[in-house]
């Protein structure tokens, strides 16, 4: 339990969340848009390259927000995510 307590979002939510861009595409196989939690505060989509911040515990799953960080390398993402 201690491990899930430190997650900013529940493991169940992470399991169903998808990148809203990649999920619309047929290019990425059977289960497009899977997200990986990085820096404990970002959701990164390997398919589209879009990166979604988690601010105050709320995943910001808006396309324009994910697009803003597309060209930013994972290592350069601000922690905590800036506004």
């Amino acid at each position: 339990m201690s491990e899930t307590d430190t997650l900013p979002i529940s493991a169940d939510l992470l399991e169903i969340l998808r990148c809203p861009v990649a999920v619309q595409s047929d290019e990425y196989g059977d289960d497009p848009g899977r997200l990986e939690l990085v820096h404990n505060s970002w959701l990164v989509c390997a398919d589209s390259g879009y990166k979604y911040p988690i601010r105050d515990g709320i995943p910001v799953m808006l396309i324009e927000e994910g697009e803003k960080w597309k060209e930013t390398a994972v290592a350069d993402l601000p922690v905590p995510p800036s506004a």
């Binding site: 979002i9 529940s10 939510l13 169903i16 969340l17 998808r18 990148c19 809203p20 861009v21 999920v23 619309q24 289960d31 848009g33 979604y52 105050d56 515990g57 709320i58 995943p59 910001v60 799953m61 808006l62 396309i63 927000e65």
Partner: peptide, 29 residues
Amino acid sequence: LTVAVEEAAKRKIENITLQLGNAEALPFE
């Protein structure tokens, strides 16, 4: 959403997840 998060906490509703998302591009599988 901030209002909703506070309200959920006040009502002690624990089986809810809130997130930013667009009705026309839902971020779910």
